[in-house]
Computed example of a mutant assay.
Amino acid sequence: MKALTVEPGTAQSLRVEDVPEPEPGPGDLLVDGIAIGICGTDHEIVDGDYGWSPSGRDRLVIGHESLGRVREAPTSSDFTRGDLVVGVVRRPDPEPCGACAHDQFDMCRNGRYTERGIKQIDGYGSERWRVEAEYAVKLDPALEDVGMLLEPTSVVAKAWDQIDKVGSRSWFEPRTVLITGAGPIGLLAGMIGVQRGLDVHLLDRVTAGPKPSIIHDLGATYHSGDIGAVTEKLSPDIIIEATGVAELVVGSMAGTSGYGIVCLTGVSSGKHAIPVNAADLNREMVLENDVVIGSVNANLGHYRAGADALAAADPAWLSRLISRRLTLDEIGSAFDRQDDDVKVVVELDGGR
């Protein structure tokens, strides 16, 4: 069968090649791959900056934003042939830390977790794949064209869960949320914010292309100006920072109302430094009881919450987040960034 593979640590080693059928394991589902989504992590792996191959091998099957259809399922599982499923990315470490032992592998303390398509386990970028039934999430059949959005949706479902946990330390009835960055993470975070009945605002640098209208049709407000001016006007209760851009990170930390919560979901490159008045920032955060948290990855509960959020969304709106759909034969252009890209998808079944 065909699969999308790389040699981690070697730039531009991406290729489509024939690989053996996946080895069955106890309790596994056999799944026909439908599609994978491409994200920044995949770009880093293809550029040779990230990723680990399985033990004893040079190459890794990539693809962690999965979507597939069950071909075979154990009779003891909750799945049947034809179910639409997504595979969870992370697995707990073999000698679990306390968090992993309590099914919170997204909060692994020792870093010995593994991840499908990223770290030491083959991903879902193949015509067929297997996944343990307990690490598979069933999707509403109406999501057949957009279900590969579940993995990024699980990430923002976790971010909202963390915001709720922090907010609950005192009376908490947020009204306004600002999201910096209108990529898939930012748009999906905004979607959940709208579903919660919040006044949702998104800040991005572009003034043309599809993003402003996508945000408008979500029922949110689009901004493209300076973050300081936007936060001064909005005084948001919550900011979800989804870019990792240093100016936006610092601007978010300084930009909430009192008892504000900033959730950082973007990863900074570390290549750009800016001056920061740490004393004033510290004073404001302390006197206003502000909180800044980082959030990454997701556990099974977040995947299920993400599946519920997608099922409650407008499928036509979700489909607009997918800028390009390519086949395995067109894989080279999937990693050529285009200005209007939101989410690029690679179809594993030839586009049906």
Rank of each mutant, 00 (worst) to 15 (best):
V6D: 00
V6P: 00
P8A: 02
G9V: 03
S13F: 01
V16F: 09
E23V: 04
G25H: 04
P26L: 00
L29M: 03
L30I: 02
V31I: 12
D32S: 08
G33N: 05
G37H: 02
G40F: 04
D42L: 06
D42K: 07
D47H: 08
G51R: 05
S53D: 05
P54Y: 07
S55I: 14
S55Y: 12
S55W: 12
D58W: 09
D58C: 08
H64R: 13
S66W: 08
V70R: 03
A73S: 08
S76T: 14
S77D: 14
D78A: 12
D78K: 13
T80P: 09
D83W: 14
L84W: 11
V85A: 10
G87K: 12
V88P: 06
V89G: 10
R91G: 10
P92C: 13
D93R: 12
A99L: 14
F105L: 12
F105S: 10
R112I: 06
G117T: 07
I118F: 10
I118G: 03
I121W: 07
D122S: 04
G123A: 08
Y124C: 10
Y124G: 06
S126I: 09
W129A: 12
R130P: 11
V131I: 15
E132G: 13
E132Y: 12
V137H: 08
A142R: 06
E144L: 10
V146L: 06
G147D: 01
T153C: 05
S154Y: 02
V155A: 03
V155P: 00
V155L: 05
V156H: 03
K158G: 04
W160D: 00
I163H: 06
I163K: 06
I163N: 05
V166W: 01
E173I: 14
L178F: 12
I185N: 01
I185R: 02
I185P: 00
I185Y: 00
L188K: 01
A189Y: 03
G190E: 02
V194H: 07
Q195P: 03
G197K: 12
L198A: 13
L198R: 11
D199P: 09
H201C: 07
L202G: 01
D204K: 00
P212A: 01
S213Y: 07
I214H: 04
I214E: 01
G219I: 03
Y222L: 03
Y222A: 04
S224P: 03
G225Q: 01
G225H: 00
E232H: 15
E232F: 12
S235L: 10
D237W: 06
A242Y: 00
V245L: 01
V245Q: 02
E247M: 14
G251K: 01
G251P: 09
S252I: 05
S252T: 14
G255C: 07
Y259T: 02
C263E: 15
L264N: 15
H272A: 13
A273G: 13
A278W: 15
A278Q: 14
R283M: 15
R283V: 15
E284H: 15
M285F: 10
G294T: 15
R304A: 01
D308S: 09
A309K: 00
A316W: 11
W317C: 07
I322M: 07
S323M: 05
R324H: 13
R325L: 05
T327Y: 09
G332A: 06
S333N: 09
A334Q: 04
D336T: 11
R337W: 08
Q338R: 11
D339W: 08
K343G: 05
V344H: 00
V344L: 06
V346D: 02
E347P: 07
E347D: 13
G351V: 05
